[in-house]
Write a protein that binds this DNA or RNA. Structure first.
Length: 922
RNA sequence: AGGACCAUAGCUCAGUUGGUUAGAGCGCUACCUUGACAUGGUAGAGGUCGCCAGUUCGAAUCUGGCUGGUCCUACCA
């Protein structure tokens, strides 16, 4: 074994072996346990959020697999309609072509081809994380089976009246030429202007002033609205104004939507280009004047002069023309929220188009009920509120997209515009008795990607077929997801699954935080602060990292800034930490918080932890291989105190890990394991074992017991750690397991450790605590007195009980080795203590004689500091116990505990005070 | 505007139903290459738990208010 842990080689070797051996497939006779992967976007590459999420799921899966559950982790990707189409369109653009030139069929062919070449990227990366999904069942939302499920769902919802086609305002992306959902629109504050225009009253009696942030929309104005109780305008309601530049007469209407205090209190109403205006228009029967084409140029509905202009050019033109006419009253700077498409980044237009909708309100009621009743539980629970607030105010879901890549809507139109929904053209004709010469054309649109993702839990298991997998693994056990897609995906899955399966998609939704950089900033390409989990595993040098982060940057200034920041943050690049260290870091950060700040310092610490574990295994193997470790059940074995102690502590650790994992507290599990391995097993037990194994007075049974304990505890620890650090545990386990008499092809399929109550040993714990206090007391003296580590000191004990005396007898060798003592003994009756440094272990006093190596003044200082601390403690305790309310009302055992503390502190004070006197008198 | 969440050591975070001397890792200081490990060991410094009230015998923990920060939803043209 190497002196340091080298992850790269063993990771590749073990992963290939696991996958080839089929260890990831379901199996086991226990209850089914199933997780559906939130399908990553097929165009994507692995980012820290994926890494984090996959790692959490893998721990759950490996844990349950080892618990004996029949474990299915369903893996796959989604087709990401817009994103994927954009990628391929950009490729075409680079070739100087576009998709229209290619035609729909050839274009889709091209997308499939691209998917075949690059779609495996993300799954390759998932493998690097050591995840253990059942790759043989990998699915893609555009697969034949899943497409069938999508079609089936669409047709059935249509027939049930839950899908309908309607013409209304949607969020239109003028660069992608498609509708997008509310959730794909990001509205952020930007600097703009508020233009004030005068609209002359038709009767010539003056004008009204309206304010707008989007002047070009005035060409589509249909009315002016004022507040019904606004006295300034009351007499104008019912009159009309002349719309400048257009000449149309607009009615003045009263509506309490208007805010009297904003601007002039008069609002121009453009029903075809604003969601609020649309609603107002409906109330007042106003016409919809659609002034935009699909690409956001002005349509034929505007005066000829403006037709075909881009919306922003038209804006300048309209402002200039109104100014010319003297109708521009003023322009103010104004901050407003501008809606932009999260993919394209362009300003989104509310636009009037025919689209398909799901009647979400009807589907929502049972979905709300499922969470209220506890059939589905969110962890942490607070996310249920987020879910409810979204569900209670649900809008109908626009599911059509004007794209080519996706599930094409199974609807056909005849020349009259009648719609027929069905599996294919032939069945539509047959069902509706349409003659063969009636021309039908299929709807051009595809469905929102989330429509197919909403079916994910059951479509991946074979629905609408009645498969055995569906019966066995559905409902699934837990969904692991980020809070950012509770609306997007979780809610829709619940609605669809309840409707089509009559059961919930999963029992638990575990909501994790979002990974951010060390300053809490969201990681994004444009900020240049993204970390690729693979780079943390393999390492990357500075130049490559800079190149990677600035690649494809449109703005050179931004690239420069990113380069500078990167060079500052990672002057040495990033070193290779390995998968296990990365994973353990993710677990340790997975607390209940919403933000996960990823700090390189943490991963370095856990890389060191891997190395610690590695070296602990090295030590154990060096001492156990080729030796008698008690594999033979006939050989007599006796356990020394230290063995009984570590075995007992192991049981507590096992219990805590179970509790933590059952509550999705990966951070606590990681903490408990780290603490046990490093601070107990390595720091104390391994050191104690050295003493035990070298003890010339020990017998074979005892040495056998210690070796057996060394290997058994390590072997258990490896199994405990395996769900978190799969590679290092597998590699070590292969060498360690035979020493405990276990042989197995893989640790993956070994049972997870369970608490063995018979190994819990309170007495051993107490005695070892005693040993530790003495060792730490002497070490503290040595440390503070600057005694050279190589030098031994002597220790004298006084005032011990019979128990202390017995313990000394039993543990003398351990004390001497661990505290580097030359001798240790009790003072004889009547023997006076020499000038010494003092430590206390309860009643027991420990003296380390000064005898030339300890500084009297330094010891006086040390005693004084300790006495001051005790003084503070006494004050606190006396204050508490002098309070009659406390003594009367607090539970008796609490009062008793405080009294004991007080007595102990008083005694410590007396002892140390006496010692100080003694030193001062010298 | 409404709602949610957060505020604990220099940094990143734990702290279970109120009772601990408030913990961990990283960082910091001193000493040490001792036979598993310098990706290490030993010892140490460092916190009036954001602020103010209240409930209680007792508050980091419960309640209210304030301040600061993050996010979500809805948006005023």
């Amino acid at each position: 074994m190497d002196k340091t842990f080298k992850p790269a080689e063993i990771e590749k070797r073990w992963y290939a072996h696991w996958e080839e051996s089929g260890y990831f497939a379901p199996g086991g006779s226990g209850d089914p346990y199933c997780i559906m992967i939130p399908p990553p976007n097929v165009t994507g590459s692995l980012h820290m959020g994926h890494g984090f999420q996959q790692t959490l799921m893998d721990a759950l899966i490996r844990y349950h697999r080892m618990l004996g559950n029949d474990t299915l982790w369903q893996v796959g990707t989604d087709h990401a309609g817009i994103a994927t189409q954009m990628v391929v369109e950009r490729q075409l653009e680079a070739e100087g072509r576009d998709r229209h030139e290619l035609g729909r069929e050839a274009f889709i062919e091209r997308v499939w081809q691209w998917k075949g070449e690059s779609g495996g990227n993300i799954t390759r990366q998932l493998r690097r994380l050591g995840t253990s999904p059942d790759w043989s069942r990998e699915r893609f939302t555009m697969d034949e089976g899943l497409s069938r499920a999508v079609q089936e769902v669409f047709i059935r919802l249509y027939r049930e009246g839950l899908i309908y086609r309607g013409q209304r305002l949607v969020n239109w992306d003028p660069s992608l030429h498609t509708a997008i959902s509310d959730l794909e629109v990001i509205a952020e504050e930007e600097q703009g202007h508020l233009w004030h225009f005068r609209y002359p009253l038709s009767d010539g009696s003056g004008h009204l002033t309206v304010a707008t942030t989007r002047p070009e929309t005035m060409l589509g104005d249909a009315a002016i609205a004022v507040h019904p109780e606004d006295e300034r305008y009351a007499q104008l309601v019912g009159k009309t104004v002349d719309l400048p530049l257009v000449g149309r007469q607009l009615p003045i209407v009263a509506d309490d939507y208007v805010d009297r205090d904003f601007g002039t209190g008069c609002v121009k109403i453009t029903p075809a280009h604003d969601f609020n205006d649309y609603a107002l228009g409906q109330r007042h029967g106003l016409p919809l004047i659609n002034i935009l084409n699909a690409d956001a140029t002005l349509s034929d509905a505007v005066p000829e002069f403006y037709r075909g202009l881009d919306r922003f050019t038209a804006r300048e033109r309209v402002v200039a023309d109104l100014e010319q006419l003297g109708l521009l009253e003023k322009v103010e700077d104004h901050t407003l929220k501008v809606p932009r498409g999260d993919r394209s980044g362009v300003v989104i237009e509310p636009w009037l188009t025919p689209q398909w909708y799901v009647d979400a309100k009807k589907l929502a009621a049972p979905a709300i009920e499922a969470v209220e009743s506890g059939a589905i539980a969110f962890v942490p629970k607070q996310w249920e509120n987020t879910y409810f607030s979204w569900m209670r105010d649900l809008q109908d879901w626009c599911i059509s997209r004007q794209l080519w890549w996706g599930h094409r809507i199974p609807a056909w139109y005849d020349p009259e515009g009648n719609v027929y929904v069905g599996e294919d053209e032939a069945s539509v004709r047959a069902e509706h008795g349409l003659s063969d010469n009636l021309p039908l054309h299929r709807d051009e649109d595809v469905l929102d990607t989330w429509f197919s993702s909403a079916l994910w839990t059951f479509s991946t298991l074979g629905w609408p077929e009645d498969t055995p997998e569906l019966a066995r693994y559905h409902p699934t056990s837990v969904l692991v997801t980020g809070f950012d897609i509770i609306f997007f995906w979780v809610a829709r899955m619940i609605m669809m699954t309840l409707h089509f399966r009559g059961e919930v998609p999963f029992h638990t939704v575990y909501v994790h935080g979002l990974v951010r950089d060390s300053e809490g900033q969201k990681m994004s390409k444009s900020k240049g602060n993204v970390l690729d989990p693979i780079d943390l595993i393999d390492g990357i040098d500075l130049e490559d990292l800079v190149a990677k982060r600035t690649a494809g940057m449109m703005q050179p200034r931004l690239a420069e800034k990113i380069e500078k920041a990167t060079r500052q943050h990672y002057p040495e690049g990033i070193s290779a930490y390995g998968t296990d260290a990365l994973r353990f870091t993710f677990y340790s950060l997975a607390s209940t918080g919403r933000d996960i700040k990823f700090d390189l310092g943490r991963i370095e610490g856990y890389r060191n932890f891997c190395n610690k574990l590695w070296n602990a295994a090295r030590y154990v193997l060096m001492n156990a291989e080729g030796e008698d470790c008690g594999q033979d059940p006939e050989a007599p074995v006796s356990y020394h105190l230290v063995d009984r102690w570590i075995r007992s502590r192991l049981q507590e650790t096992i219990g805590e890990v179970h509790r933590a994992l059952d509550n999705y507290r990966f951070d606590l599990a990681a903490q408990v394991l780290y603490d046990f391995v490093w601070n107990e097993y390595c720091d104390w037990y391994l050191e104690l074992s050295k003493v035990a194994l070298r003890d010339p007075t020990g017998d074979d049974a005892a040495r056998r017991g210690t070796r057996q304990t060394l290997v058994q505890v390590l072997e258990s620890v490896l199994r405990l750690l395996h769900p978190f650090m799969p590679f290092i545990t597998e590699e070590s386990w292969q060498s360690v397991a035979p020493l405990v008499g276990v042989r197995g092809a893989t640790i993956m399929r070994q049972p997870y450790p369970e608490v063995d109550p018979s190994s819990v040993d309170k007495a051993a714990s107490a005695e070892l605590e005693w040993l530790k206090i003495i060792v730490l007391g002497v070490r503290n003296i040595r440390g503070e007195m600057n005694v050279a580590p190589g030098k031994t000191v002597d220790a004298l004990l006084r005032n011990g009980t019979e128990n202390d005396k017995k313990r000394l007898l039993d543990n003398q060798t351990f004390l001497m080795q661990l505290a580097r003592l030359g001798s240790i003994r009790f003072l004889a009756d009547g023997e006076s203590a020499p000038a010494a440094a003092t430590a206390l272990a309860g009643d027991l006093e420990i003296f380390v004689p000064l005898a030339g190596l300890i500084d009297r003044e330094a010891e006086l200082g040390r005693l004084t500091r300790e006495l001051n601390r005790i003084e503070g403690e006494l004050k606190r305790l006396r204050g508490k116990l002098d309070n009659p309310g406390f003594v009367a009302k607090a539970p008796a055992e609490v009062v008793e505990r405080e009294r004991e503390k007080l007595a102990a502190q008083e005694q410590a004070q007396a002892r140390l005070e006496a010692q100080r006197q003694a030193l001062e008198d010298m």
